[in-house]
C-alpha cells in the first residue's frame, strides 16, 4: 500500500463524513414533516400526487396496514416490470428492435429490481430496450429504495411514539422519500455524470470503424464495431444513491460510458454509502438523541474499515501464480502493482477495492472490477460483508433497520449476561420482539445455505459453474448470498441466466426482502404500543463505545458462526491451496 492509497481513502472518508450530518438531518426533516428548503418547489407536486392518487396524507396506518400497502405496491410493481419486459418488442423506444425478454429472465429481473437487489442475469445493452431500462428498471430503482426507507421510518417512529398502534402512512413516506430525497439527489448526480461523459441519449447504437482491424477465428475480417449507448446517466445516478446497483451496460461501472473518469468514480462510490450512512443521523434526530445514530454509524464504519484494510492487503499482495512465473507485480511508476486481474488499469487496486468493499457492505451490487478475479481473501471480504445480513451500511433503509434489529438482539444478550430487563431507547424488549428479531437475523442465512446446497447437489446448478473446485463453490455461495441479502453483485463466472437459477435466485430475493420486512414491521407495531420507560441505573446505555463494541461482536459472531463452514469450503480452502502452491 502506498501513501496514495491512504490519501484516496482519507479523501473519500472525509467527504462522506462531511455529508452525513446535513443530509441525515435533512432526511429527518422530510419524514418528520418539518419545513425544508425544497418545500416551495416540491410541496405543490407532493399535494398533486396525493390528489390524483386519492391519498389522505393525514390518515395513519397500523403495522398491518403499512405492511399490506407495501406488499400490494410491490406486487403491482412486479407485474408491471414483468409485463414491460415481455412486451418491449411492441413498445416504443426500442431502436435496436430487441426481442421480448424471456419469461424466466423477466421473472428474475422483475423481482431483482422490485426487491432493490438488482441481480442481473442478463446483459443490459443486448437485452433491454431504452423504455424497459427507464420505465421498468429505473423507476423501480427509485420505488424500491423509497419503500426500504419508508419501512425504516415506520420502525423509528415505533421508538418515538407510545401507546399507539399507528406508524405513519406508507404512501406519504414513499412519496416524500422519492420526491424530496432521491429525485433531487439523483438529478444533481446525473447532471454531473453527464458532464464527465456518462451517456444520456435516445440515439440508436453507433456503428464505428475499428482503428485496428481484426479477424475472426475463421478468417473473416472485422472492420466495424457497434457501440451501445442510451439513457444511462439517469439510471446510473439512482443505481448508486438508491443502493440498487443494476448497470445500464453489462460491465456495470467498469464500462467507460457508465464511469468514465476518476471524478465520476469518486462520486459514484461516495453515492453508494451516502444515504445509508446519513440515515444513521436521521435515526438519531428522529429518536431525539443523535448519539444513538452516531453509535450505529461508528459500529458500521469500524467493520467497514477493517474489512477494507484486509481486502487492500490481499489485493496488493498480487497473484502467487503470476509470481511463480516471474511476473513483476511490485508497485512502480509504470503500474499499480498487486493483483490487477479483473480490474481497470485506470482505477488501480485502491479504487477497485474501495468500490468492492463499499458495494458489498451497502447492498449496492454495482462493480467497477470483477470480484471473481480477486484473491481468495479479497473475494471472501466482499462475500462475508454481504453475508452479515447487509447491516454494515446496507441498503437504503434496509441496512439500518437490519442494524437496529441487531441492536435489539445486543441489548437482549447484554441483559441476559447481567440480569437486566432488556430495553432499547426506552422500550422494553419482550419475547415477541426477540422472536421476530431472530427471524430477521436467521432467515437470510437459511436461504443462502439451503439455496447453495440445493444448487451444488443438482445437475442444473452445477452445469453452469465455470470454475472447478472451491472457486466454483464460491461462485454459487456468492450468488445466493447476494440474492438473499438483496445485494445484487455477482462473483461473475456463474452462468446464472438459466431457468433454474432465474427461478431459485428469484425466490431467494423475494424471501430476503419481504419475509425480512414483515417481522421488522411487526416489531415496530409491538414497540409503538409500549410505554416509554425513563432511563434508570439499570439501563444499558446504547450510545457508548462499550455498546458499539458489543454490537459489532454480535454482528460478527452471528456472521462467523453462520457462514464459517460454508466459507471454509470456498474461499478459505482456496486461500490455503493458493498459499501452499
Amino acid at each position: 500500500m502506498t501513501i496514495n492509497t491512504f490519501l484516496q481513502i482519507g479523501l473519500f472518508s472525509a467527504i462522506l463524513l462531511a455529508c452525513v450530518k446535513p443530509l441525515g438531518l435533512f432526511m429527518a426533516s422530510v419524514y418528520l414533516g418539518r419545513p425544508t428548503l425544497l418545500d416551495r418547489l416540491i410541496r405543490p407536486l407532493e399535494s398533486w400526487f396525493y390528489r390524483i392518487a386519492g391519498i389522505d396524507s393525514k390518515s395513519e396506518m397500523t403495522w398491518l396496514q403499512y405492511a399490506s400497502s407495501l406488499l400490494t405496491f410491490s406486487f403491482v410493481s412486479l407485474i408491471a416490470v414483468y409485463g414491460i419486459q415481455r412486451l418491449q418488442c411492441l413498445l416504443p423506444l426500442n431502436p435496436e428492435s430487441l426481442d421480448a425478454v424471456s419469461p424466466d429472465s423477466s421473472f428474475n429481473t422483475a423481482i431483482s429490481f422490485v426487491t432493490n437487489t438488482n441481480w442481473q442475469g442478463y446483459s443490459g445493452e443486448s437485452t433491454m430496450s431504452y423504455l424497459t431500462q427507464m420505465l421498468a428498471l429505473t423507476v423501480q430503482n427509485f420505488m424500491s429504495a423509497a419503500a426500504g426507507m419508508a419501512a425504516l421510518v415506520a420502525l423509528i417512529r415505533a421508538f418515538v411514539r407510545q401507546e399507539t398502534n399507528l406508524l405513519g402512512n406508507f404512501w406519504v413516506d414513499l412519496v416524500r422519500g422519492t420526491i424530496y430525497i432521491l429525485l433531487p439527489l439523483s438529478l444533481g448526480l446525473a447532471i454531473i455524470l453527464v458532464s464527465q461523459g456518462v451517456v444520456q441519449t435516445f440515439s440508436p447504437y453507433r456503428e464505428v470503424a475499428l482503428l485496428e482491424l481484426t479477424t475472426t477465428s475463421d478468417g473473416k475480417s472485422i472492420t466495424t464495431q457497434k457501440i451501445a449507448t442510451g439513457p444511462a446517466a439517469s439510471q446510473v445516478a439512482i443505481k448508486q444513491l438508491g443502493t440498487n446497483g443494476g448497470g445500464f451496460f453489462n460491465a456495470n461501472s467498469a464500462h467507460p460510458f457508465e464511469n468514465p473518469t476518476p471524478l465520476s468514480n469518486l462520486l459514484q462510490v461516495l453515492s453508494i454509502l451516502l444515504i445509508p450512512a446519513a440515515l444513521c443521523l436521521t435515526f438519531g434526530e428522529m429518536v431525539g438523541d443523535r448519539r444513538q445514530g452516531w453509535a450505529l454509524l461508528a459500529a458500521m464504519s469500524i467493520v467497514f474499515f477493517i474489512m477494507l484494510g484486509i481486502s487492500l492487503y490481499a489485493e496488493n499482495q498480487g497473484n502467487s501464480a503470476f509470481a511463480k512465473l516471474g511476473v513483476d507485480q511490485a508497485v512502480s511508476d509504470l503500474q499499480s502493482g498487486g493483483n490487477m486481474e479483473g480490474k481497470e488499469v485506470r482505477f488501480g487496486i485502491t479504487n477497485s477495492v474501495l468500490w468492492s468493499v463499499a458495494t458489498a457492505s451497502a447492498s449496492n451490487g454495482s462493480v467497477n472490477s470483477m470480484h471473481d478475479s480477486y484473491t481468495p481473501l479479497g473475494g471472501l471480504v466482499a462475500m462475508w460483508l454481504i453475508q452479515l445480513d447487509e447491516v454494515i451500511f446496507g441498503g437504503v433503509g434496509s441496512g439500518l433497520y437490519g442494524m437496529i434489529i441487531f441492536a435489539i438482539a445486543t441489548v437482549f444478550m447484554a441483559g441476559l449476561m447481567v440480569g437486566r430487563t432488556p430495553e432499547y431507547l426506552g422500550k422494553k424488549i419482550g419475547a415477541f420482539e426477540m422472536k421476530m428479531a431472530s427471524l430477521v437475523i436467521m432467515l437470510p442465512c437459511v436461504v443462502v445455505l439451503l439455496g447453495t446446497a440445493i444448487s451444488v447437489m443438482l445437475a442444473q446448478g452445477r452445469e453452469t459453474i465455470s470454475n472447478p473446485g472451491p472457486h466454483g463453490f464460491s461462485q454459487v455461495l456468492y450468488a445466493f448470498s447476494s440474492a438473499a441479502n438483496n445485494n445484487g453483485s455477482a462473483f461473475a463466472g456463474l452462468g446464472a441466466n438459466t431457468p433454474f437459477y432465474n427461478g431459485i435466485l428469484g425466490l431467494s430475493m423475494l424471501i430476503g426482502r419481504f419475509w425480512m420486512l414483515l417481522p421488522v414491521l411487526a416489531i415496530a407495531g409491538s414497540l409503538a404500543e409500549k410505554k416509554k420507560i425513563p432511563n434508570s441505573n439499570g439501563t444499558l446505555p446504547t450510545h457508548t463505545p462499550l455498546f458499539v463494541v458489543l454490537l459489532i461482536a454480535v454482528v460478527v459472531i452471528v456472521g462467523a458462526l453462520s457462514f464459517f463452514p460454508a466459507l471454509a469450503l470456498g474461499p478459505i480452502v482456496e486461500h490455503i491451496l493458493w498459499t501452499k502452491n
Binding site: 415481455r86 424466466d104 414483515l518 411487526a522
Partner: peptide, 30 residues
C-alpha cells in the same frame, strides 16, 4: 410459460399475506 412464472409470483404473495396474518395472530395470542 408466462402463466407459470406469474403463478409462482402470485403464490409467493399469497403465502406472504398468510405469513403476515400468522405473525399478527402471534401478537394477539401473547
Amino acid at each position: 410459460m408466462d402463466f407459470v412464472w406469474l403463478l409462482a409470483l402470485g403464490c409467493f404473495f399469497v403465502v406472504t399475506f398468510l405469513l403476515l396474518n400468522g405473525i399478527s395472530s402471534l401478537r394477539t395470542d401473547k
